[in-house]
């Protein structure tokens, strides 16, 4: 039961984009800086990421009739 609630909560967070930043950090950890020693890229701050994410999400046709 508790697991189901947790899964539903994760689904809701994922659908709404509430966890977008966490997923971005994961993606960043997986794909960037895999073997860098000195000059690593830094991930965006939550605020900056959200700005970009929101602006990009709204480019193009997103809603129908």
């Amino acid at each position: 039961m508790l697991n189901n609630i947790k899964a539903a909560w994760r689904l809701l967070r994922r659908l709404s984009g509430d966890d977008a930043y966490e997923r971005y950090l994961e993606h960043f950890a997986r794909h960037h800086n895999v073997d860098c020693l000195h000059a690593c890229d830094r991930p965006l701050s939550k605020k900056d990421f959200f700005k970009q994410w929101q602006d990009e999400k709204w480019h193009g046709v997103k809603r129908c009739c």
């Binding site: 967070r13 984009g17 509430d18 700005k51 929101q54």
Partner: peptide, 14 residues
């Protein structure tokens, strides 16, 4: 709320 007060807290704001 989502942009400045609590950036990215989509569910709270919604």
């Amino acid at each position: 709320y989502m942009r400045f007060f609590r950036p990215g807290q989509v569910l709270e704001a919604s």
